[in-house]
């Protein structure tokens, strides 16, 4: 465990809590892509199946359970509790464009051809593209509320910090996880355009348009 990893996890947790807090306080999920949130719930579900087979540490178990709970509560808020405020007309990204290639790739390129390992690989690939429906929605409506931009910033920052963590682990432990690193780079690239807007426009206007 190094500083980059801890900061990455904190950033990830902060992003999810910011989003939940925003929905809860405003009693509205306007501007949030339900499809992206459903994909994240699927990512955590398929990745954390090792909760049942493998104990790594108390920290690991607790964080996994928190991430799973947060993502399910978010999906529940969007598709049930605050469904009336959900902007489904603008959440029109075609999920099959992500799910079909990601499923195919996880069968082709994995560490071991076993169900748990294929599902873990699927979750890593899917996470790298899961934000696309949200970014698509923002480009379609042309705006994002301030809290949504903070959410996206911390969500992007988390994987960028993981990249630093992987560089650190490579040099200190000679640890190298090719699937996670390549997907993590792809994932971070998707946020670069957003990071640029967040820093240049978001801060002074309070919103990204």
């Amino acid at each position: 465990m190094n500083l980059f990893r801890i900061l990455g996890d904190v950033s990830h947790l902060l992003a999810m809590i910011l989003l939940l807090g925003k929905i809860w306080r405003s009693k509205s999920c306007r501007g949030i892509s339900g499809k992206s949130q459903a994909l994240f719930a699927l990512v955590f579900t398929t990745r954390y199946l090792d909760l049942f087979t493998n104990f790594i540490s108390l920290y690991n178990t607790v964080m996994k359970v928190i991430f799973l709970l947060c993502s399910y509560v978010t999906v529940y808020m969007i598709y049930w509790k605050f469904w009336k405020s959900f902007d489904s007309e603008n959440d029109t990204f075609r999920l099959e464009f992500l799910l079909v290639p990601v499923t195919g790739l996880s069968f082709l390129e994995n560490y071991s051809f076993t169900p748990l390992e294929i599902l873990w690989t699927f979750s890593i690939y899917l996470e790298s593209v899961a934000i696309l429906p949200q970014l698509f929605m923002i480009s379609k409506t042309g705006e994002a509320e301030t809290i949504t931009t903070h959410y996206l910033f911390f969500l992007g920052l988390y994987r960028a910090l993981y990249l630093a963590n992987w560089i650190w682990r490579y040099h200190t432990e000679n640890f190298y996880d090719q699937i996670a690193v390549v997907s993590g780079v792809v994932q971070t690239i998707f946020y670069c355009d957003f990071f640029y807007l967040y820093v240049t426009k978001g801060r002074c206007q309070g919103r990204v348009e």
């Binding site: 996890d9 990745r47 790594i56 964080m63 996994k64 071991s112 996880d177």
Partner: peptide
């Protein structure tokens, strides 16, 4: 080929 390792990252 089995290159799977325990996953300690989230």
């Amino acid at each position: 080929e089995d290159g799977a390792q325990p996953k300690d990252e989230l």
